[in-house]
Design a protein around this nucleic acid. Structure first.
Lengths: 207, 207
DNA sequence: GCGCGAAAAGACCGTCCGTACTATTTTGTT
DNA sequence: AACAAAATAGTACGGACGGTCTTTTCGCGC
């Protein structure tokens, strides 16, 4: 099992690049074979079905995401620095032009799979839940460390962080809004700032 | 031009439902014909190409979005109420189970098209830019009306609103997080609250 | 150098795709 | 009732799809 595994890795590398640009729908045996300079059957020998290719690609992307974003961020100091590292490393990951010229494969897959039950959907959903939990934990820790107020809701904060991430993706990929990266930074700063000091005013609730 | 246009409308209705669930990639002549109980060629007579179908579907979705979300919201009182109406009407639109069982067609299309140049991409991008501008204008008006502080950045605020919207879509469609609608409300309240009073503390900037 | 298993290629199948071209039905008008 | 026009169905074709089977090439321990 010497050479096969390296070609397999090369195939997955090409596949991720392909999916990044064309989406999972563009991940076809023929196109992938052509792209990696192999025959369809030669490529097919490494996987047993199209769905297997899809799962392998998603698995590889998830592993890379973990290695490039989550794990390094977890080595940062607890609290706000770690939280910022999570988001900033996501930004770097999202804009990795070489390995993913079309932006984050997982966000692409998340939308494409969200109404298509099956193993691929569950794989991505689970990865996203873990990512969400990583964010939530980082927020909880920031509270413990005294960086954030105690009445900050980690789940809500994670929701808002994810919003910043998605809005950045949206503005960059579709709208091509210039200065999006700076805007993302502002949004992050403001969100963190709001969690830090100034006991939030309680307004009388309607109804 | 009596009957043809009504069938055409019915086809588009089915098509939107299809795209909502399966994405633009699932919008195929055969599937659509089967779904609307017609022959492929009978259906094809209403359009001149597959891309024409795609464009018609997107155009119809954009028109519906305008009618169901933007225009009604613009009839709300200037300032915060109008802003809230924009977001809340988006929520209703997103969760219109009958006409779009798989959630907002435009967000789906936005991700699928973001790296695929061509008329469909431009159509969606333009619609999204207009939506973003509607948000921005509503924020500007809220500032004029004295609802928000004068140093609020409308572009940033619109970016954050879009983040809330996208995060809601994400949590509902992929993660199926319970209570997402309430969370969205919280995020919106908090964002608006932050723009209202408490002159934001200026922190010394790094570097 | 040889032989053997792994890796890749080649040819091929049935299905569905988009899209022509033609035939048939349905509709509206007189 | 007749008939032209509009709407829809039928048929056919080339290409790409996922997938199988058989053959060839390659890498490596002896």
């Amino acid at each position: 099992m010497g050479k096969g595994s390296t070609t397999r890795a090369r195939i997955l590398d090409d596949a991720i690049r392909l999916v990044s640009v064309e989406g999972l729908a563009g991940l076809t045996i023929g196109r992938l074979a052509e792209l990696s300079g192999m025959s369809k059957s030669g490529l097919f020998a490494h996987f047993e079905s199209r769905e297997a290719v899809e799962l392998a690609v998603l698995g590889e992307a998830i592993a890379r995401f973990r290695d490039a974003v989550v794990l390094p961020a977890l080595r940062e100091p607890r609290g706000e620095p770690r939280l910022r590292a999570l988001v900033n490393r996501w930004r770097d990951w999202e804009s990795a032009q070489v390995s993913m010229p079309g932006g984050c494969v997982l966000l692409q897959a998340a939308v494409e799979l969200d109404d298509r039950p099956g193993p691929p959907r569950e794989l991505v959903a689970e990865a996203m839940r873990q990512w969400n939990e990583a964010l939530r934990r980082a927020v909880s820790i920031a509270i413990e460390e005294g960086h954030f107020r105690k009445d900050v809701d980690p789940a809500l904060f994670a929701f808002q962080l994810q919003g910043i991430i998605l809005s950045t993706h949206h503005a960059q990929r579709l709208l091509r809004t210039p200065g999006t990266s700076a805007r993302m930074e502002q949004a992050l700063d403001q969100l963190i700032e709001g969690a830090r000091k100034a006991p939030r005013a309680r307004r009388a609730l309607a109804r």
